[in-house]
Computed example of a mutant assay.
Amino acid sequence: MRLIVNFRTWLLALLAFTGAVVAETPLDPHLIQALKTGHLRTCLPNVSFQLESAGLASNPQKVANMYCHCLGNFYFNDLSKEEFEEMRISDGALPARIAQNRRAIQEHCATIHLPHFR
């Protein structure tokens, strides 16, 4: 299990580095924060409800908060202006670079923050 977690961490670091090289024009930090805030508005209630319904966390809101922040950081911290435009044109869908890595990002954040993934 530890080997899988280390591999995922390594893979995400590699993907983040690769993404940083590909990203052309950095997005305004205020816009990145706004995207993260919007993401939290939908992520927090959904994940909290799922954790509470399944009885998977003693404090579902706290666990969901950490998990959703983790996702938001991976989704938006390195977003470029070009990727933001891609999101705008597609009515808010994640840009291709992030969408391709979405499952790995979710698994990484789940491994760190969701009790049943440890």
Score class of each variant (00 low, 15 high):
Ala64Phe: 05
His30Ala: 15
Leu44Pro: 00
Asn65Leu: 10
Ala20Thr: 13
Leu31Cys: 11
Val47Lys: 01
Leu31Tyr: 13
Asn59Met: 12
Thr42Glu: 13
Cys43Trp: 08
Ser58Ala: 08
Val63Lys: 04
Val47Ile: 09
Asp78Phe: 14
Pro60Lys: 05
Asp28Gln: 05
Leu27Ser: 10
Pro26Asn: 15
Ser48Pro: 03
Thr37Tyr: 13
Leu51Arg: 05
His30Gly: 11
Cys70Ile: 03
Glu24Ile: 12
Asn77His: 04
Asn65Ser: 13
His39Pro: 12
Ala57Ile: 07
Val63Arg: 06
Leu31His: 14
Asn59Gln: 15
Gln61Glu: 15
Ala64Gln: 05
His69Pro: 00
Leu27Val: 11
Lys36Leu: 04
Phe74Tyr: 15
Lys81Arg: 12
Lys62Tyr: 08
Gly72Ser: 02
Ala57Met: 07
Asp78Trp: 12
Leu27Lys: 10
Thr37Pro: 08
Pro29Asn: 05
Leu51Lys: 04
Cys68Gln: 04
Met66Ile: 03
Gln61Leu: 14
His39Thr: 12
Leu71Ile: 04
Pro45Tyr: 03
Gly19Leu: 05
Ser58Glu: 12
Ala23Cys: 02
Ser53Val: 06
Gln50His: 01
Thr37Gly: 11
Tyr75Ser: 00
Thr25Arg: 10
Ser58Tyr: 02
Tyr67Phe: 15
Gln33Tyr: 11
Ser53Asp: 12
Leu44His: 06
Asn59Trp: 09
Cys43Ala: 07
Gly38His: 09
Gly55Met: 07
Thr25Asp: 09
Pro29Phe: 04
Gln33Asn: 14
Asn65Val: 01
Ser80Arg: 02
Asn59Cys: 13
Tyr75Cys: 00
Pro60Phe: 02
Cys43Met: 10
Gly19Trp: 08
Pro45Ile: 04
His39Gly: 13
Leu35Pro: 08
Leu35His: 10
His30Ser: 13
Lys62Asn: 11
Leu44Ser: 05
Gly55Pro: 07
Pro60Cys: 04
Asn65Thr: 11
Gln61Gly: 02
Tyr75Arg: 01
His39Trp: 15
Ala57His: 06
Ala54Tyr: 01
Leu56Pro: 00
Cys68Asp: 02
Pro26Tyr: 14
Ser80Trp: 00
Val21Arg: 05
Leu35Ser: 06
Asn77Cys: 01
Ser80Gly: 00
Val21Thr: 03
Leu35Glu: 09
Asn73Thr: 05
Leu40His: 11
Ile32Ser: 06
Ala20Trp: 13
Gly38Val: 07
Leu44Met: 07
Asn46Trp: 06
Ser58Ile: 03
Leu71His: 01
Leu31Met: 14
Ala64Arg: 06
Val22Glu: 13
Ala54Asn: 05
Leu51Ser: 03
Val63Gly: 05
Ala64Cys: 06
Leu35Asn: 12
Phe49Pro: 00
Thr18Phe: 15
Thr42Ala: 11
Gly72Arg: 01
Leu31Val: 15
Glu82His: 12
Asn73Asp: 07
Met66Asn: 10
Leu79Cys: 03
Val22Cys: 08
Leu40Arg: 15
Gly72Lys: 02
Asn73Trp: 00
